[in-house]
Design a protein around this nucleic acid. Structure first.
Lengths: 276, 276
DNA sequence: AATCCGAAAATTGTTGACAATCAATTCGCG
DNA sequence: CGCGAATTGATTGTCAACAATTTTCGGATT
């Protein structure tokens, strides 16, 4: 194809800023389930559609690979990571462990201000949910757990947790849409009440149940997806079918939003020395 | 300096293999405390001394930055990461949390074979210690904790733990040598006995005490190294004297061993699809 | 003596071209 | 018509040169 041989345009953006934008866009696309596990990420395509240089793309993919969101096979390129049942279980277990610790810490030291922030957050979440803005609702739902990590104050654990949460769409991919990967708003509200009451063990118990419920949903969805296939979203099915050869992936066109709106990538940024 | 302008030799090694070697060598140098926090890592120097291409070095540094072992400042290069007291505490807390979970799991499911491997490992450790091979002793000492993670079976937590353990020399750097960052062999042996007895809570308690002891050592050492100074922001001050401009770092000459002997880097490798 | 400015050196960042590799297709041959 | 081997097209991997930036150092000025 001739188009593929064209040079990149002259006004390519590069530098850490462009790379960050690329990483964020890909993470967002994964979180919004616009990219299925196994989907191919071709460097030149990404470069052309994002306006970044190929090097920026390359480095971005390198970072994403390290955080486990994409898989790199030498000489074969990058694909969205797939996640087997075993790793899914391990991720859930790790989440339970880390969030339990964070909730315990937070329950013991939460200030009035912290509670207020949590309440406000849950309210935002509720509104988004009520208004049917599912994309935002999912985003906020993830944000709730990250907010807890933030308030608990351990940045190391917070960055681990973010990594785990970013991987969630990989486990819960069913090809049939948006049902899973979504926390009920009710549970979050109850957790906040337990924190406010200083009842660490209740907060932990509620959250564990909350996560286990998610896990059950995931298992159920996966079982269903493997049994009955839905023709309604044909393109999603096409890629989920694990093509034995090179996946003539569905066009990643339109999967990305290259303007970095939210900072979903977070931890993926390497630690850089303070501002200059 | 003219030498710095010379081109790289023709027989530069590249490819993922060379990059891996570079990363391993740097991680090892950090673990063996041959590189102080704040030390500069100049791309061309590394390339010349390792025989790898500058690109391989660059990508390696990128990976190391993501795992938090080095810091990258745009246009200013890479330095070994420094670690303030707050992050040190967070790292210890995270270690306690993760290792406690792993020990609980392992205590409940350890097979005869697992116990045998642990025993053999502790014996190796004891011998290295007795023979005064401190380098090996420290290596094995770290390996003990990683072996527990491995046997417990949760790879996600295991990779988190490895990342934390790799950072340990950054926190415990005192500039005066090798005293800290070293677990007494006795504690490990007791932990294995608790695991063998299936006594999870004892194993956890022993390990927590073990880690807290390490942390106390670290704080004591640091206090001694810094004198009465408040360690609020400057950590590497003792060794680097905090030059206002570019740190004329202590020579990194001889700090590296470019033959990859042990695979200390571990998790730093991005997830790659199965062998080809 | 201390400080500020500017040129030069050293270092990082980026580019475009090219080599190496892989998957798919086509061709040759039985 | 089937099957393996060479070919082709597309993609990743690497390099050496170039551009941009930062640091250093010498010298002039106060």
């Amino acid at each position: 194809m001739l188009a593929a041989r064209r040079k990149l345009p002259r006004d390519v953006a590069s530098g850490p800023e462009a790379e960050q934008r690329v990483v964020s866009a890909i993470v967002e696309a994964i979180l919004d389930q616009k990219l299925a596990p196994g989907a191919r990420l071709v460097e030149r395509e990404l470069a052309l559609s994002s306006g970044a240089s190929r090097l920026a793309i390359r480095n971005g993919l390198l970072r994403l690979a390290q955080s486990g969101l994409v898989e790199l096979s030498p000489n074969k390129g990058a694909t969205i990571a797939t996640c087997g049942p075993r790793e899914a279980r391990e991720i859930f277990d790790a989440r339970v462990l880390i969030e339990s610790s964070l909730l315990t810490t937070l329950s013991e030291k939460a200030s009035e201000d912290d509670i207020a922030r949590l309440d406000a957050f849950v309210e935002d979440e509720r509104q988004a949910y009520a208004a049917g803005r599912m994309q935002d609702a999912r985003y906020l739902s993830r944000g709730f757990h990250l907010l807890i990590a933030d308030l608990a104050g351990n940045r190391v654990l917070a960055s681990f947790l973010r990594e785990l949460i970013n991987k969630q769409p990989l486990l819960s991919w069913t090809g049939n849409g948006s049902r899973s990967c979504f926390c009920g708003n009710q549970a979050h509200s109850e957790i906040v009440r337990a924190i406010a009451a200083g009842d660490a063990s209740a907060a932990v118990a509620l959250n564990v149940e909350h996560l286990r419920e998610l896990e059950r949903q995931l298992i159920a969805d996966r079982g269903k997806a493997l049994g009955v296939e839905q023709p309604s979203s044909g393109e999603a099915k096409a890629i989920a079918e694990r093509p034995p050869k090179r996946a003539r992936a569905l066009s990643t066109k339109g999967a990305f939003d290259w303007r970095a709106k939210r900072d979903a990538a977070g931890v993926l940024a390497g630690k850089t020395r303070g501002a200059r």
